[in-house]
Amino acid sequence: MNGELFSFKRDISDIGPSVLFDILGFPITNSTLFILLITLGLVVFSVLVFRNKSLVPGKAQAFFEIVYEAIHNQIKTITGNDYHTKRVFPIIAAIFLFVGVSNYLGLVPGLSSITLDGQSLFRTATADFNTTFGLAFGALVVLHLVSIKDFGILGYIGKYIPVNQIKEDLKKGVLSPIYVFVTILIACLDIVGEFAKAISVSLRLFGNMYAGDVLTTILISIFAFILPSFWVAFGLLGALIQTIVFGSLITVFYMQAAGPEPGTEGK
């Protein structure tokens, strides 16, 4: 008895996903397959739920409705009004659901143990930086498009290059070059900050989920029974928190990018 009876030696998964095969030059990784699994599950679940949709909901429909309302309320808490909630709900709710389902599906035991040629077929999508970054970057692109729509192209550019502020600074006598320099520096930082938003939210989610995977592997290799259960139970809470943090941050970024509700300008 060398203790291996109570532990499983497993390799800690790579920080990057494993490429399984290529389609038209695009690598299909185990995290991509995981997303396809989510899509498939979503389609099957939707069909099952909405085939028997009724005014008095069954258990599955009621569960869906509870999740729907919880996300709606969370978004409304941040936006503070119905106009922005209705406008941003589909994309933010999709992010909430995608991240949530991905985080929870990643906790399903044995899913990452399905292998093909020694490579895991599925990897928690949110534990892959490509997914989290792609998601955050895509969301921020949409938010900037919303900003351009709300403020117009000149108003949008004016948010980052404060021409009026620079004109004001130029009137400040001998110190004006310093004021102008500081204003331009702040503008540059704002632009960098926009890119940093995508990186920070994606790294936060990826870091937490990947660290969860790594810790689970380490705990199982130390003592396979009981001990990892606590970590998995903690993971259930962590998965929820990470989902809420990611979705809420994207909503906050939307509110920073979007214009005021029509009819309330100047109020």
Partner: peptide
């Protein structure tokens, strides 16, 4: 170093 590949990121974004 974080395993980023723009093609994979794009594929995952499209799937999302």
């Amino acid at each position: 170093k974080l395993g980023f590949d723009w093609k994979v990121a794009l594929a995952n974004l499209v799937n999302f």
